[in-house]
Amino acid sequence: MHSNIIIIPMMVALLIPFYEAYRDDNVWQKLLAFSSIACKTALITLVASVLRDDWMIGVVGVLILSVGNAGLMLLAHIVKRVNEA
């Protein structure tokens, strides 16, 4: 019950960058939407793990939170190189 109250608004917030990634045609706007989605999904994982009192899922949530950012930076640099050439 409590978990539904918290997670359902988070899910609705997740839908906004989803729509943006579908609609916008600029590569940077899409990347921005992706970064937002990556952060939000990791945080939903973390909240679900804490509410279920499940340590294993929580560790995975934190790992996804930090690793997703690293991958995004890599992708941003490659896209920048492509735009320059």
């Binding site: 973390l46 930090s66 930076m73």
Partner: peptide
Amino acid sequence: AIFSLAIWNTILGYVLAYCSSAG
């Protein structure tokens, strides 16, 4: 999680801004 957010997401914001403005 708080440390990871505070450090990594700030750096990511900077990298995104730098890359997009250079483009």
